Structures are given as C-alpha cells and as structure tokens.
Simulated assay, not measured.
Amino acid sequence: MSDKIIVYRTFYNPIEANIIKAKLEDADIACFLTDENIATIQPLFNQAVGGVKLNVFEKDVLTIDKLLVDNELEIAEEDQAENADIITCEKCGSTNVSYGLATKNKYSWWVTILSILMTVYPFKANKCYHCYKCGHEFN
C-alpha cells in the first residue's frame, strides 16, 4: 500500500468527527479533518460541502477498522443499557418520539378562557409525547 491520503469517513456532526480523530491519535494513527471550520461556523453549509471528512493514510485503514469496530461494540453495549426505558408510540410502535409542546390540543380550556378575558396570548401550553412517524400525541 502507498502513502496515499484518503477520506476514511464523513461526519455531519463535527463533535463526533473530533471524537473519532482523538481515538485515532491516541492509537498513534496520523489523521486530520477537512471542512471542519465550515461545519462549525456555518452549519447550514455542512451538507453542501459533504460534511466533515476524516482523512487518513491508506496503509492505516485496516488498523483503523479494527480499532473502531472494538470501540463501537463497547458503545453499542452501553446504548442498550441506556435504552432499556425508551418511549415508544402507542399507535405505531415507533421509537422516533420526543417530549415537548403539543401540536394538536395545545391549550386547555381554562387557559383559552383566561387568555380571551385578559386579551393576551395563551401563557401555558400543554406538553406531551409526539411521534414523528405517525403524528400521534400521547402522555
């Protein structure tokens, strides 16, 4: 193999790219990031430039693969322990769910009445879980 520099992986999250870069540098593997400044200073341009690119020597690819696979297995085990209490949608079973302001029944009846009487914008909104796959909202 030659000393050719290649793009090993592309990241759309500069923090993740720096974490992987730090792991490689700890293992004494030469690497550098390109387009990192664009991704951190102007995040909207990140996709246009193709993300943050991790550049390595072609001769180090097999070593990097082995190193990162070992680390990813450890991370996957930690994620399984953390994800034991994941909220799933009652309707479709999706895990693409988050907690936040309601979109359908945003205000309760008493907030609406008080807002009309005081001629102000409603001051308290309901919160619930929202499924991004089917749009179902639940508590």
Rank of each mutant, 00 (worst) to 15 (best):
A27S: 09
E78R: 08
N96M: 02
A22K: 14
M118W: 10
T119V: 05
L68G: 04
D26G: 14
A30V: 09
I5Q: 12
S115G: 08
I113Y: 13
D3T: 04
F32N: 11
Q80V: 09
L117P: 00
T103Q: 04
E58L: 15
C128V: 06
A48S: 15
N46A: 09
Q42Y: 15
Y129R: 03
K4W: 12
K106M: 08
D3M: 13
G51E: 03
E25H: 11
D60Y: 02
C131M: 01
K66S: 15
M1K: 07
N96I: 02
T119P: 05
V49I: 13
N71E: 14
F45R: 07
E78Q: 08
V69R: 04
K133V: 04
T88R: 11
G135E: 02
I41E: 14
V69M: 14
E74L: 12
E58Q: 11
K21V: 01
K133I: 03
T112Y: 11
Y99H: 06
D60M: 12
I19P: 01
C128D: 02
D35K: 05
L54V: 09
E25M: 12
W110P: 00
K104A: 13
G50R: 06
P122T: 00
F32W: 10
N126L: 10
G50P: 08
T34C: 02
V111I: 11
E137Q: 01
C128Y: 09
K59Q: 10
A81H: 13
I75Y: 14
K59T: 10
S108R: 06
Y8I: 03
K106H: 07
